[in-house]
Design a protein around this nucleic acid. Structure first.
Lengths: 238, 238
DNA sequence: GAGTGGTCTAGACCACAAG
DNA sequence: TTGTGGTCTAGACCACTCA
């Protein structure tokens, strides 16, 4: 078996999700887990640290690993979740309408965002997201063509992320996001059901691969009454 | 010296911030750092993982620890930063106006949020935040009185967090936040300079101590044109 | 005092990148 | 082939909680 600590992590996540260990209770001690999985303590600790980072447990010295109420830590839009994953989670009716899928040289604004050379062609994808019969999200993506040479309308309608990671094998690693509120644009009016709203919540994301190359810039524009962002922040002692 | 890996972490952060290692360059290898700090490799790796989690570097197998452009990863409002820290960072004119500081039994809504018993008295603090001469944030805090028995107006005007961590010695560990957009309330109109805005961005935070007890609930209401949230998310392979 | 997690060590073998 | 980071081990000592 490869990645023993990931195996232990997934095992424990499953037990918590099934309610085998209730919020407020503690997991078996590191010592016990070491025996149970026939491994070393540092490996067990790696798995437990992952659980902690993801909001499943809180480690308390002298007591043990306390299971948190994970219901309070669901991440509908947080982290790197894609729209596809999100709508799968919600289990709601959703639809993606592709309005634009083209290859072009970057305009000034986008060029700055993506920090790429002017001769680097980019995919531009504009998609409206319909949930429960209403068009409430407008996604504008820019992706470096040298990294993703092929894209189609049907891929854009499904999950671009799944395609990039599954088919092409690129390893998406981290993202920086900025959230602000802006006045609606003509494009918003054209593609979204705004119901009189004059402002939208804008999430700008810069997505990086595992080798630290910036490969995508996304602007996701949400109708404010349907917007929600959940964040779980663990303090880093400095 | 205690906490060798934290020492190494802080040392490396300083070097990156001073520009001794430029973005795109790599840090010394783990092997070299092990010699340099006369320690074991796992300890060096702990320091490097902290750097990675905080967006300073990206570790690339076979290559090294690549320094990221940390300018793109500043967190004005992210994580657990308090208003005081934030305004210190921005270096702007800011002022806190305390409108309410009282001790009361929780109302139903707050009781649910804080999951406390009805006989658990809570501090209620309502503060407006003025930046650059405009009142743009309204903070409503609820804190368990059994954990923080004393509070004063002058503490509320300065930093409650600094008081709680410094004087009382409680260890704030993690928080869950929710961000949504809501219509303005009468209270918002009363205490904020809304400039005609009819909606505010609301950040609801649940703050936990190191021993996993929930001790504070905060509602932070921001005028949308002055709102910004920055998030750095590293993917956890599962 | 017994049990818990926090830190640290000195090795080992592996997967990957680059010359 | 060499050097890098990723994983894993089998110990050790410390700080804290709780009975």
């Amino acid at each position: 078996m490869k990645n023993k600590f990931l195996f232990i992590y997934n095992e424990l996540v499953r037990q918590i999700q099934r309610g085998k260990v209730q919020p407020g209770e503690t997991l078996p001690s590191e010592h016990d887990l070491t025996n149970e999985y026939d491994t070393s303590r540092e490996t067990v600790r790696k798995a437990l640290n992952l659980l902690s980072q993801n909001g499943y447990i809180q480690k308390v010295r002298g007591k043990g690993s306390v299971v948190l109420d994970h219901g309070k830590f669901e991440f509908p839009v947080s982290g790197l979740t894609s729209f596809k994953e999100l709508s799968d989670q919600l289990g709601q009716d959703f639809k993606t309408i592709v309005h634009e899928l083209s290859l072009e040289y970057p305009k000034d604004g986008v060029k700055q965002h993506l920090q790429c050379r002017a001769d680097q062609k980019l995919w531009k994808i504009v998609r409206a997201r319909e949930i429960g019969g209403e068009k409430i999200i407008l996604d504008k993506d820019f992706i470096r063509e040298d990294l993703v040479p092929e894209l189609s309308k049907s891929i854009a309608e499904e999950s671009i992320y799944a395609y990039i990671e599954g088919e092409i094998g690129l390893d998406i690693s981290f993202a920086k996001k900025e959230i602000v509120v802006e006045n609606v644009t003509e494009e918003d009016r054209q593609y979204l059901d705004l119901l009189g709203h004059e402002q939208v919540v804008v999430i700008r994301s810069y997505v990086y691969l595992a080798d630290a190359t910036l490969f995508q810039f996304t602007e996701s524009r949400h109708r404010p009454d349907k917007f929600q962002f959940v964040d779980f922040a663990r303090r880093t002692k400095a």
